[in-house]
């Protein structure tokens, strides 16, 4: 149960590495990226056919490749939500009424998969997968601090930005602390707990209680340390965000291609049939 904590630390280190690679998306101003990807996800949610989703997915894969994000990282991050949505749509082909497309004999019964059910299951899964893919691409190519910085420049509330950047910094500290507490607890145990769930629940909860107290005490110390360094309730940032022609070019190109995919059924010389294509 403490392994997740280590995974988080490892994953965030890898994120930093991907975000500092010399690729297409990494070079774009994070403000532009934030707005562009938000619009891209809006367009994705509005798509109506499986072929459009495939086109969008292909577009994302090309962007990932141009940003030197390994395919494994991109698909690995999106696989969890893919499996989750597949489980959700699993009953759909059987319960949706419509023309049968596959019939399995199952003992004395017949298992009938309807065409409409399979279609709506595919549509839902693809929509979720592609929108999550777009968000993943944004997070893999942008440092979290850069995203926060651009939110600040896009006039999000100051208190919110300040709190978030402080919180982000301390996540790693507490993750490390919680992991050490868990390790110490396991070291004190005579045998591995298996079935006694209630006791596990109690131990973890009281650990969280202890962590809470430590967090509180740390918060007081941090404030004093900040005061000693001249904190006056305002944060000043050193780095400047600069946007230029290439950022506008990127934004226009990305949105043009997204809209092209959206309008594809109306401008395609080959008719899109049956919703699938």
């Amino acid at each position: 149960m403490f392994k997740e904590l280590l995974k988080v630390l490892g994953e965030s280190l890898r994120n930093e590495e991907y975000a500092s690679r010399n690729g297409l998306l990494q070079a774009v101003d994070p403000r532009f990226k934030l707005v562009c990807f938000f619009s891209l996800i809006v367009v994705t949610v509005l798509l109506q056919s499986v072929l459009q989703f495939l086109l969008m997915l292909f577009f994302l894969i090309v962007l990932a490749a141009a940003s030197r994000i390994p395919q494994r990282a991109f698909f690995g991050r999106t696989s969890l939500v893919l499996v989750f949505s597949l489980i959700i749509v699993l009953p759909l082909p059987f319960i949706t009424p419509g023309s049968p497309c596959l019939i399995f004999p199952l003992g004395p019964w017949l298992l009938i998969l309807s065409y409409e059910g399979v279609y709506s299951a595919a549509l839902f899964t693809m929509r979720v997968w592609v929108s999550v893919g777009a968000l993943t691409l944004l997070t893999l190519t942008t440092r979290f601090t850069a995203l926060l910085h651009s939110m600040d420049r896009l006039h999000f509330p100051k208190l919110f930005i300040q709190l978030t950047s402080l919180t982000y910094r301390y996540i790693f500290l507490f993750t490390d602390e919680a992991y050490r507490m868990g390790l110490a607890r396991e070291a004190r145990m005579v045998r591995k707990e298996r079935i006694v769930h209630l006791r596990t629940l109690r131990t973890i909860s009281s650990m969280i209680g202890t962590l809470f107290i430590r967090a509180f005490e740390r918060g007081e110390k941090i404030y004093q340390a900040m005061l000693a360094r001249g904190y006056s309730g305002e944060t000043r940032l050193l780095s400047q965000l600069q946007s230029g022609g290439k950022d506008w070019g990127f934004a226009v190109g990305l949105l043009f291609l997204a809209l092209l995919i959206y309008f594809a059924p109306f401008i395609s010389p080959v008719p899109f049939i049956g919703g699938w294509f």
Binding site: M1, F2, E4, L5, V8, L159, Q162, L163, L166, T167, Y168, R169, Y170, I171, L173, F174, T175, E177, A178, G182, I204, M207, I208, L211, F212, R214, A215, F216, R218, G219, E220, I222, Y223, M226, G233
Partner: peptide, 18 residues
């Protein structure tokens, strides 16, 4: 503010303990 931030970070960590 730092207090709220540390508590928030702590609950972020707590959410990861299953």
């Amino acid at each position: 503010i730092p207090l709220m931030a540390t508590l928030t970070a702590m609950f972020f960590t707590a959410q990861m303990m299953n």
